[in-house]
């Protein structure tokens, strides 16, 4: 008995207890729902069988049903456009800002801190504000674009099928840029200054220093930012709910919103679960990339 106590106090027992607690938490709150979700995607689920686990297995019927939905491919296309455009915009603007803030002008650290405000705002609030900005008749964005002579007529961002998805993307880029910037700033700060000095003496101009020093040294950070961005973007639900509700005519519907719509509006839990499983597969790929990119971290 004493040995057990002392091993808990000083030895391996303590480590095991810590790891065990984390595993237990993950198992109950992430593992079980995940498994349940996968199981459900192979079952016939309706309102009457919702309360029991013993439901008839239907094999890949749910998958076949989802794939043959007329809006399946449009939704997948929207999801890809949403993810790629959001991450692209967040990353490019975030990296630009991160590089800008390395210039260390007076007040730069405070200004950088202010950018985080966008990240602490609830998605629904951000959505509500962007609804005003994007409004077709009185929106600030249209006012600015017409004022600058970029467009002639107002764009009805939220109700025009050609723009509705982009309305959400713009809001999402705004929401995620600061997260990208902060992570990339940390990555930039960890590159030793003397590498740039050595490169400058070796004859590299600013552009060459960026390509040969900054980018390769940022590989791990960039990998992490993009894979986390993929996960956050696939999670983005609030903005769709607040800005377009997936419409009009599913023109801004994406997988995560569609899954919610199946499960909680149409109460077709099996199809909702099926779409979620497809998304889990995608996130798994992103996670593997993320883990691999941080493992290959290069530090002098």
């Amino acid at each position: 008995m004493n040995r057990v106590i002392s091993s808990f106090r000083d030895g391996k027992g303590f480590d095991i207890a810590l790891v065990g607690a984390a595993l237990l938490f993950l198992g109950i709150f992430a593992g079980l729902p995940l498994v349940y979700n996968v199981v459900m995607s192979f079952q016939a689920v309706d309102m009457f069988s919702l309360g029991t686990f013993a439901r008839p297995f239907v094999g890949f019927d749910n998958y076949i049903a989802v794939f043959s939905e007329p809006i399946f491919w449009p939704v997948m296309r929207n999801t890809v456009v949403f993810v790629v455009a959001s991450i692209g915009g967040q990353f490019v603007i975030g990296f630009g800002l991160a590089l800008f803030f390395t210039l260390k002008f007076p007040g730069s650290t405070y200004l950088r801190g202010l950018f985080l405000v966008s990240w602490v705002m609830p998605g629904l609030v951000v959505g509500a504000i962007w609804n005003w900005i994007l409004a077709g008749d009185f929106g600030v964005l249209n006012f600015a674009l017409t004022g600058l002579g970029i467009i002639e007529d107002n764009i009805f961002w939220r109700s025009d099928t050609a723009f509705s998805l982009w309305a959400v993307i713009i809001a999402n880029i705004w929401l995620g840029t600061s997260f990208n910037m902060i992570l990339l700033s940390v990555g930039l700060a960890s590159i030793p200054r003397d590498l740039y000095e050595a490169a400058a003496l070796d004859g590299a101009n600013g552009w060459q220093r960026f390509w040969t020093i900054t980018l390769p040294m940022m590989r791990a950070t960039i990998g992490a930012v993009i894979s986390l961005g993929l996960i956050f973007t696939l999670q983005q639900f609030d903005l769709f709910a607040a800005i377009t509700s997936g419409g009009p005519a599913n023109s801004s519907n994406v997988a995560q919103y569609w899954a919610w719509d199946f499960s909680f509006r149409q109460y077709d839990f099996a199809k909702g679960a099926t779409i979620s499983v497809l998304m889990i597969a995608l996130v798994m790929v992103a996670s593997v990339i993320y883990v691999r990119s941080t493992r290959h971290e290069v530090r002098g």
């Binding site: 030793p192 003397d194 590498l195 000095e197 050595a198 490169a199 003496l201 070796d202 040969t212 020093i213 390769p216 040294m217 590989r219 290069v298 530090r299 002098g300």
Partner: peptide, 12 residues
């Protein structure tokens, strides 16, 4: 050309 105290080799 300069030889730095930290060597400043390109780690990648």
């Amino acid at each position: 050309a300069m030889v730095f105290q930290s060597y400043a080799l390109y780690p990648h």
